[in-house]
Structure formats: structure tokens, C-alpha cells
Amino acid sequence: MAFEELKENSENIQEQVGKFVDANIEYYKLHSFKIVMKSTTAILKFSLILFAVIMVLFFSSIALALVLGAYFCSFPLGFLTVGGIYVLIAIVLYLIRDKMVERPILEKFSGIFFNE
């Protein structure tokens, strides 16, 4: 009798362990899906905002180059001046790239992956 009760209990434990493993697998699938979707939507939002900013910057640059060209009485000089401004901005951004790029991206994606 004790052997049969023990056998029934072990079968019950095996069932419960199987259900537990299946539930954990489903949980981690959903958790992985959530992380992938949050990352994908964050990248998509960033890309759309970046595209809009680039378009504004492009047309503003052309307008500034035309204004400077009219001021200097030489349109090539106006475009060259705007190009020089962008070279200076690129140098400054290169010098401070760690503070502006790496840290915010690491903080954002660390929040997505580890806090939720």
C-alpha cells in the first residue's frame, strides 16, 4: 500500500514538474518577445525621428547656404561656409561621443532588458 501511494505521488510530482517546465518555457518566450518588440519599436521610433531631423537639417542647411551666399556675394562660398560649420560640429561631436552616444544608449537598452 505504501508503495502504491508513493508511486501515485511520484506520478503527481512528475505531472507538476512537467506543467512547471511548460509554464516557464511559455513565460520566457513571452518575455523574450516583449524585449524584442520594445527594442524594435524603440529603434523604429528613433529612426523616424532621425529621418525628420535630417530632412529639417537638410533644408535648413540649403537655406542658410543661400543666405550666406547672398551675404558674401558668392553662392559657392556660402555652401563652403555651411560645410565648414558641419566639419566643426563633427569634430566637437567626435570629441564628446562617449557622453552623448554610448551612455544614453546603454542606459536605455539596459532599462529595457534588465528592469522589465
Rank of each mutant, 00 (worst) to 15 (best):
S110N: 15
L95M: 10
K108D: 04
I89D: 04
L106E: 15
T40G: 07
R97N: 04
D98N: 07
E8F: 09
K19V: 08
F58I: 03
I43N: 07
A63T: 13
E116S: 15
V21R: 13
T40R: 05
A70Y: 06
K19Q: 10
F46N: 06
V17N: 06
N115S: 15
V17S: 02
R103W: 06
L106K: 13
K99L: 00
F51H: 09
L66R: 04
L44A: 14
A70S: 10
G111N: 15
I54N: 07
I25M: 07
F114Q: 15
I43F: 13
I85H: 00
K38I: 05
E26K: 12
I13S: 05
P104W: 04
L80Q: 01
A90L: 12
V53S: 08
L44Y: 11
L64K: 00
E26G: 11
V92N: 05
Y71C: 01
L50E: 07
K29M: 04
E4V: 14
I54L: 12
F33W: 08
T81F: 11
G18T: 13
S74G: 02
L30A: 10
I89T: 09
E116Q: 15
L50S: 14
S32I: 05
I25G: 04
K99S: 01
I96T: 03
G83R: 09
L93F: 11
V56W: 08
L80G: 00
I112A: 02
L57F: 13
E107I: 12
F33P: 01
V17E: 05
K108E: 11
